[in-house]
Design a protein around this nucleic acid. Structure first.
Length: 490
RNA sequence: CGGGGUGUAGCACAGUCCGGUUAGUGUACCUGCUUUGGGAGCAGGGGGUCGCAGGUUCGAAUCCUGCCACCCCGACCA
């Protein structure tokens, strides 16, 4: 087969880029750092969205929409928050263009805005400014809102899906009467993300707390799910923040409790983005292209007809159409690729590149024998099976594939988690093995930063339910009570 | 913002050093015939302001000046 992708071994970053382009997921646009998400990539995102949206609603959340633009002054209200985002904000300064004498257009200098508008990098400020008007009493709480939106962060260096200047995401913003309730919400949502990653993306994740260094700007605690990619690097795939009363204080949002006393509201925010597309790609795909878990595949099964002439084409198509209907009846998304503009071999390669979990090939040989060829994308195996009842077989196979992809990813991760106790071991493991390193750390930001400067590895998270044990910090030798996860990250 | 590099057909590139037929190759595209169980073969065809603007020259993709864009490395990045 013609090689269209750089192999993972040869150059992992290039492989990723090739795959995104060749599988028709996204491409770079005319705007620096911004991507065009193509129909096939967007279809996967829609499946991600649909499932998450269901899960948010099941946990009591509602969708709403807030403005793209945020008055500049809002950003000065929460000191840590502006510190975290100021350097990467797009700013709108004018509201009109005019014709230039030379034939082009220029910004009309007379149309300068009194107060500049910031294109949202995240919506905490505009939302808390709004919540101020919505909350007076404990009876108005909790507020459980999610929004699906685009945000802009002017990143210096971008990569398709993993880091783009504009990206799509959802951001949940909740308001609560008590600290405990907000903390419970923060935890609940990181659990939702972990469940989604595991059950739908077939991607195992580790949940934990971020260290102070890695915490969201303005949060008291940040929880994350961390996944391991096939090159051993970590990808932060979702975060849930306990914001304490920081934003309530910044925007003066108070409520009267049952005794009539005024208190600041407790907040959380949580989000996942189109970065999940990058996670999905890097978690499962191989040198032949994308490998999609059936639950997120826009097409679960493709049927390819094989024929030599018009008469055979008609015969094969008739049978193929029957199979298509039988699969549809089972609720399976199926494409019957009847195009006679492409050859079977071309189609095989194409659907492999696009990660369609199952492929059925149907030719005259099968019609005579009452069989059909079933090919699995994840294992690249082919088997000739009886045509009768194929829809049940496919149904079962899709479940099996979903499980096996997960197990494969889980095994890979387990094989690449290393426990180390000395600095030499730490450096050696990071350089020669990669993956996640479980090591003791003295709990200080200084040590974390020094390790990052020396090795480029950062603390991904402090896992929940982490076993407590006596140990010594891998760098400073100071006492430590638990191991944390170090890794190089995207 | 520092260092390096690249702009030539939809895409990938050669040609530039050393100026000189009608600017070329692969791929993709179109037409026809033969093919079709793993990205088919042959024949024919269409497609170019050579990044932009000046300059040198009888003559510029090629030399000179300026500008623009993009890429890589670094800095930056919850």
């Amino acid at each position: 087969m013609a090689k269209v992708l750089t192999s993972r071994k040869e150059n992992y970053a290039q492989w990723y880029n090739d795959l995104v382009l060749k599988a028709g997921l996204a491409e770079n646009s005319a705007v620096r750092g911004c991507m065009v998400i193509k129909p096939y990539g967007y279809a996967i995102w829609e499946k991600i969205q649909a499932q998450l949206d269901r899960m948010f609603k099941e946990t009591g959340h509602e969708n709403a929409y807030f403005p793209l633009f945020i008055p500049k002054s809002f950003f000065s209200k929460e000191a840590d928050h502006v510190e975290g985002f100021a350097k990467e904000c797009a700013v709108v300064t004018h509201y009109r263009l005019k014709n230039d004498e030379k034939g082009g257009v220029i910004v009309d200098p007379d149309a300068k805005l009194e107060e500049e508008l910031i294109v949202r990098p995240t919506s905490e400020t505009i939302i808390w400014n709004t919540y101020k008007n919505w909350i007076q009493s404990y009876r108005d709480l909790p507020i459980l809102i999610n929004q699906w939106a685009n945000v802009v962060r002017w990143e210096m260096r971008t990569r398709l899906f993993l880091r783009t200047a504009e990206f799509l995401w959802q951001e949940g913003h909740t308001a609560h009467a008590t600290r405990a309730e907000a903390i419970a919400e923060t935890k609940q949502m990181i659990d939702v993300y972990a469940t989604f990653a595991r059950e739908h993306m077939a991607m195992p994740v580790i949940q934990g707390h971020k260290t102070e260094n890695e915490r969201f700007a303005g949060a008291l605690d940040t929880l994350s799910i961390e996944a391991m990619m096939q090159d051993g690097k970590a990808l932060q795939s979702g975060t849930s923040h306990f914001l304490g009363q920081n934003f309530a204080k910044a925007f003066d949002v108070k409520f009267a409790d049952k005794t009539g006393k005024l208190e600041h509201v407790w907040a959380t925010s949580w989000g996942v983005s189109t970065r999940l597309m990058g996670a999905l790609i890097m978690a499962h795909s191989d040198d032949n292209g994308l490998v999609l878990p059936p639950k997120l595949a826009p097409i679960e099964v493709v049927i390819v007809p094989i024929y030599r002439n018009d008469e055979q084409y008609d015969t094969v198509c008739e049978k193929g159409e029957e199979i298509r209907k039988a699969l549809l009846k089972k609720g399976i998304s199926v494409k019957f690729d009847k195009r006679d503009t492409q050859k079977p071999g071309w189609k095989f390669a194409e659907y492999e590149l696009k990660g369609v979990p199952l492929r059925l090939a149907l030719g005259m040989r099968d019609i005579e024998n009452g069989t059909i060829e079933v090919a699995r994308r994840d294992t690249l195996t082919k088997e000739v099976m009886p045509m009768e009842g194929i829809e049940d077989v496919v149904d079962k196979l899709l479940v099996e594939i979903q499980d096996e992809i997960y197990n494969k990813a889980l095994k890979f991760r387990e094989d690449n988690i290393h426990y180390v106790d000395t600095w030499d071991e730490f450096v050696d493991t990071l350089e020669n093995k990669g993956g996640f390193i479980m090591a003791h750390w003295d709990g200080t930001s200084e040590t974390e930063q020094e390790i990052q400067t020396k090795t480029k590895a950062s603390i991904r998270c402090i896992p929940f339910d982490n076993p407590q044990e006596e140990g010594k910090c891998v760098l400073t030798g100071k006492p430590s009570k638990e191991r944390v996860i170090f890794a190089k990250a995207y």
